[in-house]
Amino acid sequence: MNRPIGIIDSGVGGMTVAREVMRQLPKEEVLYLGDTLRCPYGPRPFDEVRSYTLNMIRYLYEKDIKLLVIACNTATAAVLKEVQATLPIPVVGVIHPGARAALKITKRREIAVIGTEGTIQSQAYAQALHNIDERVNVHSLACPEFVPLVENGAVNTHEALQVVYERLAPLRDLSIDTLILGCTHYPLLSPIIKKFMGNNVSIISSGTETAREVSTLLHYSNRSYTGDRTPRHRFYTTGSSEMFNRLTSEWFNQDIEHIEHIHLD
């Protein structure tokens, strides 16, 4: 099926998912929309997150996408079930793929989840984990400072090191063996997070698992592109296209030809 995959996020964090989708599915075209103007979503009220997310979905759906990825954990917790029930195309969130990956790896059923305030308050990860294995112990921690670090391009700074170490300190004395990065921005901080947590804690980023789910859904719904082409990816941002271009160049190791500033009502 010669139609693109749509990916939405509250900002640039969803690029970690987009990059993995592009790696695993090199023939597929991606349309990415990051609402950097209104980022972060984590501290916002539920109704506001829902409204903004549906706003982004409407924009991409009008571009005839064949599958939608909600790459923002906060947005996934707010609207996934609603959107899956109303859109006539497959819709994938990032919470369940991450939860399943963590349960495959954990040996002691001691799992920590870090995320935005909205994601942690929703208890979406705890519910997803307990729906599969009610015996697992889930330790949740909100890390509201992490998203601004990523959005401002400050992931390789002393400030980032200090902020991550201070925020994750409550996890140090827990007996966890698996840590879920419950926000798609957080993998950009994963070197610092891994260094703090140590070699005995496995770090789970939902990007890889989400891309696998996208691949499976495309195959079973006969929506995969099977021709021969070089895909033309398109990226949209509600904020600074200059900043967006700089970050995409850094993270994808290539220039993205189409980056466009858009306005959402």
Rank of each mutant, 00 (worst) to 15 (best):
G6S: 06
I7S: 05
D9G: 09
G11N: 11
V17D: 03
V21W: 06
E29F: 07
E29A: 14
Y32P: 08
L33D: 06
G34D: 00
G42H: 01
F46L: 08
R50W: 14
S51L: 00
I57V: 15
E62A: 15
V69L: 13
V69I: 15
T74Y: 06
T76G: 11
A78Y: 05
A78T: 11
A78Q: 01
E82T: 10
V91P: 11
V91Y: 05
V92P: 03
A101K: 15
I105G: 09
K107R: 15
K107A: 14
I114C: 10
L129N: 09
L129K: 08
H130D: 00
D133M: 13
R135V: 11
A142H: 07
C143P: 08
C143I: 04
P144M: 05
E145P: 08
L149Y: 14
A154T: 08
N156C: 09
V163E: 04
I176R: 05
I180L: 14
L188D: 02
L188C: 00
L189C: 00
F196Y: 15
F196I: 08
M197H: 04
M197N: 03
I204Q: 05
S206M: 12
T208Y: 15
T208D: 15
E213Q: 15
S215F: 05
L217H: 01
L218R: 12
L218M: 08
Y220M: 12
N222P: 08
R223F: 09
R223N: 11
T226H: 10
G227P: 02
R229F: 06
P231S: 09
H233Y: 12
R234D: 01
T238C: 00
F244A: 11
L247C: 10
T248K: 00
E250F: 07
D255C: 00
D255G: 00
I256E: 12
E257S: 13
E260L: 07
H263C: 00
L264W: 02
